[in-house]
Amino acid sequence: MYNRFAQVYDELMADIPYENYLAWVVHEVGNLKGKQLLDLGCGTGTLSIPFAHMGAHVTAVDLSQEMLDQASEKAQQEQAELNFDCVSMTDFATDEPVDVAIIAIDSLNYLQHAEEVQQTFERIFSVLQNEGHLFFDVHSLAKIEAYLQGPFIYEDEEVAYMWSTEAGEEGHSVYHDITFFLKNEDERYERFEEHHYQRTFPLEKYIQWLKQAGFTTVTVEDSIFGEDHFGLRHFIHAKK
Rank of each mutant, 00 (worst) to 15 (best):
F135V: 00
Y110E: 04
Q76W: 09
V8I: 14
N109F: 07
T219N: 14
K74V: 04
K211V: 13
I124D: 07
L82C: 10
D69Q: 12
F230Q: 13
I153C: 03
S88K: 06
K211G: 03
Q149P: 03
E227F: 04
T94D: 00
M54C: 06
Y189F: 09
Q65C: 02
Q112M: 06
I224R: 07
E28D: 14
D228H: 12
G45E: 02
V218F: 08
V159I: 15
E221G: 03
T216H: 15
E122G: 04
F192N: 06
M13F: 11
N109W: 09
T46D: 01
D91F: 00
Q7E: 15
F121Q: 08
N184E: 15
T44D: 14
R4P: 02
H57D: 13
Q119T: 11
V61E: 01
D156N: 15
D10P: 01
S88E: 04
D222S: 12
R4W: 10
L111W: 09
K74E: 04
S126D: 12
D91E: 10
Y154R: 02
F136T: 05
W209M: 07
A213H: 04
V8G: 11
Q79V: 14
Y206P: 07
E73L: 15
K205M: 12
E145L: 06
D10E: 08
V220R: 10
S164Y: 08
C86T: 09
Q65K: 14
Q129L: 07
L63H: 13
K35H: 08
M67T: 11
Q118S: 10
H139I: 00
T44P: 06
Q112Y: 10
A146W: 12
T217R: 15
L82P: 03
E227W: 00
L68G: 00
E81Y: 04
V117T: 11
L148G: 03
M67I: 08
E28C: 06
E190T: 09
Q198V: 09
F152T: 04
K143A: 05
L128H: 01
G168C: 10
V87R: 13
L12T: 11
F225M: 08
L128P: 00
Q36M: 08
D222G: 05
T90W: 03
T90I: 11
E73A: 15
A167D: 00
L111H: 07
N184F: 09
Q65H: 13
F235M: 05
L128D: 02
D39K: 03
H229Q: 15
F192C: 11
L38F: 03
A56T: 11
L47V: 02
A114D: 13
K239W: 11
L111T: 05
V100G: 04
D95L: 08
E28Q: 13
C42I: 00
V87S: 15
Q77I: 04
W163H: 11
G41K: 14
H113I: 06
T219A: 14
M1W: 03
Q119P: 01
D137G: 04
A60R: 02
Y147G: 04
E131W: 03
F181K: 03
S140P: 10
E81W: 06
F192L: 05
G168F: 01
H57T: 05
K205L: 10
L182E: 14
F201T: 00
M13A: 08
K205I: 02
A75E: 07
L128V: 00
Y147Q: 11
T94K: 02
I49G: 01
